[in-house]
Write a protein that binds this DNA or RNA. Structure first.
Lengths: 238, 238, 238, 238
DNA sequence: TATGAATGAGTATTCATTCAT
DNA sequence: GATGAATGAATACTCATTCAT
């Protein structure tokens, strides 16, 4: 109902809308977490609700797309830093970038933090991130810049942990994460410290959540659950 | 639907139900986060929905009750450890207990992590926890067991951070948090490390969420939002 | 579930649905009073519950829309009659139309009758009605057709009163209101009668109900009451 | 659980409670209308909810009991006035008392106004009231104090109408009903006025609402409706 | 392709009523 | 008889998703 400039290709508009949506959704989720409604995102992007669903068949797909963009960014950063001379400094820089990213995006944390929220693609990208960061970490280990028992997966996991440490005071002290990042560095670079217990996680090669059903005591998965398999963890029963 | 012990007084059943509810709710929230419905909790506890509301007039009250139990436990632990000789070991023990507690309860983290989810009582108890832990930390500092720039609030915040670090692999490796706890200790006890940047948070003396409205760019607060001021952050639109 | 005329634009259906809803709601409220549920209205209109809320974001809005339609009709009638030569006859005609309207709609009375049920818009329209009717009445007074101490607000109030007089026998004698209307005329046009006591109401310029809390003796306003500020007056306890 | 003074007879307490309840309920309903909850009434009376139900098996029964008391009062007043010399003045006095009673009790109006809210006993008492008032009116007619075409049922109905006229301004002008009562007198006593149209209602000998089902278009009476047959008119659907 | 109206399952919460103590 | 805990149907309202235009 609103005219659009006749763009170069018929697809130009679609591409534009996709960008608009990703931007709006990133912002919206960042501010409000995964519970922000599709309607609000549509509105922020200035498109109709139907358009959101044309581009992303479900809310989960949209969440996945956004998360992937962020993960890609981190992977890119890690890859770039792989070329730096000082591997310790590179690791520092990567982690700083990583925590900053998380701090800006609440939804990202929620998605990353809950296995049940994850798309296959996201899981794959997480694996890629872990691999790249493992390379980064390996170099730092070899250069003696980090303690020897630290893995790439540790580093990736720490990103979320450091962010979470500062999260409760985020409103009052938006930079507090820097404090806890430094504290983590102190641990990470404490080459003389006592060895870490418990073997390092094998990576975040998370299993498909659909296979790890309710551990115990739950009711059978109601049919109404079918929709929303991924987004919601709302158990329910009735 | 559930057998009942032939209790002596009508209160006996009520007490039992309250316990049943707290247990069921703790479990349910731990598994599914704060979005688990009251209906599911009722069912898990084997009572009718109305019974949940008789015991906890609103979902927030239930959440608060659960959270308070956990916080009380932590405060108790901290108080007990205040009497230990070795303040460093005491701090270690407190943090171990703390992270373990968190690991058992996802909702706890969500409630603690989001100022907007908090009851006045919960905020008060958090303050109390911070104070007690500050005392614990002060002793450790004085004994030279921890670096000098660590506060009690730092310690409390770290509990959530350490837990979060391991959370993504919780299903596969339920003990992974021990690894990151030790790593945190390495940072905390690294007395020679470089000073932490950014002054320590003043405590978790969180402000009343009703005063810190949506920061920016949001949609106008729909009137229907009025309900549920505390629990939900769900935006919506259409 | 219901046949639809093959309309030209998507709006056609929407308009139709809006009409369907207003009609169904008017009927439903007329029969059952304001306590009829939104679900029943949806069903009567042959639409889903969500559709009702798309058109009228809350029950109050629906009630207000219906009431406004009726008020508008009355204002229109009054304005038209302002041009008549015989002001007394015009007033008679207006009142006849008014009572007839009310008789067709119970909810209208409940909404008009209770200050606490009112939308700002409804209050404004009531004020407009009073003003127009005051003009009508003033002319009748000047022409000596009505007693001198009758105001427009009196006339508007009488509409509800006359309707109410006949309401208990509405089912058995749907035209009984004509009898009481005539009786009211006899009072109104009784120019020689003794003066009315108590000064006339200043108009129905009702105050915002949120400022006039429970007068006395009540229970403390439960927080859960916040929702539904307008529609319900349901106290509760337990 | 609370000791009570060992009253004369074992029933003394019951009688007391019944009074307490009737008083509390009258007040509560007067203030809040029929939607006040049984819980609130119990609380106001200082008894437990169960006690309310022991005395009045359902909310309708309680409502009926209260309404009967008021009706009884009116019948008593009418009977007393039957002995007065000046029948016109007696009628005036009766109506004044009647409207005043109504004005003090919102629930009474709701119950009287809606056939569907009525108990058989209430209907019988209304009939008795009509009869008594008919006698009162007949005397006034015979004395030429009222116009000849006015019946006792007219008078009873007018009570509600006059009250309703002033109801919308009740908060601001609690005495406004006197104005409309006088206006009604002017009509009633206007012996020279034109004859009233439409034959007078045969009385309020209302039919059992259960026999006059939904007139048209409604949904089938849901089984869940069975309870609450009288009180609620809440249709519902889903 | 974009739109936005319609859908309908889901949520928290209320309240009359029942029943064990 | 009194108590108050438990019940469960009902209600207003939300939101992901579908589908006609």
């Amino acid at each position: 109902m609103i005219e659009r400039a006749p763009a170069q290709s018929p697809r130009a508009d679609m591409v534009r809308n996709r960008q608009l949506l990703l931007t709006a959704a990133t912002e919206a989720f960042a501010e409000g977490g995964v519970d922000v409604s599709m309607g609000e995102i549509a509105q922020r992007a200035g498109v109709a609700k139907g358009t959101v669903f044309r581009h992303f068949p479900s809310k989960d797909d949209l969440l996945a797309a956004i998360t992937l963009r962020l993960l890609d960014g981190l992977v890119g950063t890690a890859e770039r830093l792989l070329k730096a001379d000082d591997a310790g400094a590179a690791l520092r820089e990567f982690m700083t970038a990583g925590v900053e990213t998380l701090t800006a995006d609440r939804a990202f944390c929620e998605v990353i933090g809950r296995p049940s929220l994850q798309h296959a693609e996201v899981r794959a990208e997480i694996a890629r991130l872990c691999d790249t960061v493992e390379a980064l970490t390996a170099r730092a280990r070899e250069q003696g810049a980090v303690r020897g028992d630290i893995t790439g997966t540790d580093v990736v996991l720490l990103l979320g942990g450091i962010h979470q440490t500062a999260a409760p005071v985020l409103d009052q002290q938006p930079q507090a994460w820097r404090r806890y990042l430094e504290l983590a560095f102190a641990g990470l670079f404490a080459t003389g410290a006592r060895a870490l217990p418990h073997h390092p996680p094998a990576g975040l090669h998370l299993t498909d959540p659909r296979q790890s059903a309710r551990p115990a005591g739950g009711s059978p998965p109601s049919p109404a659950r079918r929709r929303q398999e991924v987004t919601t963890t709302k158990g329910h029963t009735d």
